[in-house]
Amino acid sequence: MRPAKIPTEELMTSGHLACQGCGATQAMRFALKAMGPKTALVIPACCWSVIDGPFPHTSLKVPICHTLFEAAASTASGLKAGLEMRGDTETVVMAWAGDGGTFDIGIQALSGAAERNEDIMYCCYDNEAYMNTGIQRSSATPVGAWTTTTPVAHYKKRPKKKIIDIMAAHSIPYIATASVAYPQDLIEKFRRAREIKGTRFMHVLAPCPTGWKLAPELSVAMARLAVTSRVFPLIEVTDNGSTWKVWKDFEQTPVADYMKPQGRFRHLTDKEIDSIEEEVDRNWQIMLSRERLSADLPGLER
């Protein structure tokens, strides 16, 4: 067989209940290819509570502990402790939560686990709203977006919560963002994270054709444009939150190219998109300045 671009082992099966073109599903498939079968998942209320399939069925070949909406990180902490005490020190416990369960209702448990530096991975697959309940705004919903609770006449005015900054402030050993449009990069980051002890936070942008009012065939394209427009930079934060690395090796594309195909932004005027682009640029510059700053920090072994 010709060598494959990504591992051929499938730990996710067909027949799951995700919508057409679901980014969260791609994210899971890639992540599990990186993580391998010695992985136990903790899934709080989120799309994946449904995607997995109805009892007594599952679409994953790894064990899953479904749990409460706000409890991904704490359940994972307990599960990891339990497995270790049972003598299983090899299995990696990974919480797998949506943006609601991470940015909003689950942030307390996440913060607690991160502060304790629990030996868990935490992946937020971010589809930027409460998609499972029918597209309500979350604190991960980007500025300008329509949702059922931020109707066009009153679209979301506040920017997306900067979860990476929050997590970096917890001094955890590894933080990374990834995109389903770049599976090899995603897999490499999950593999790297897998080998690290302590709390590792992964943030994966997972386009939701249903909630973004997007043609399903464009979901990967949007994930890519989010990166190339710098709306969703691919970064790694290591050395307990102090070293920032930003991926820059791509051809920049306009923010409008990312926003225009998505119905959730359809109401925005060109002027509004311009101002969003300014914000995107500012955030990008902040990232770069952090990267420069961390390069100049004395006393860190790299």
Binding site: T13, S14, S59
Partner: peptide, 11 residues
């Protein structure tokens, strides 16, 4: 607890 996979579900 699950006891089967989802591949019966011909999507």
């Amino acid at each position: 607890m699950s006891i089967a996979d989802m591949t019966w579900n011909l999507t």
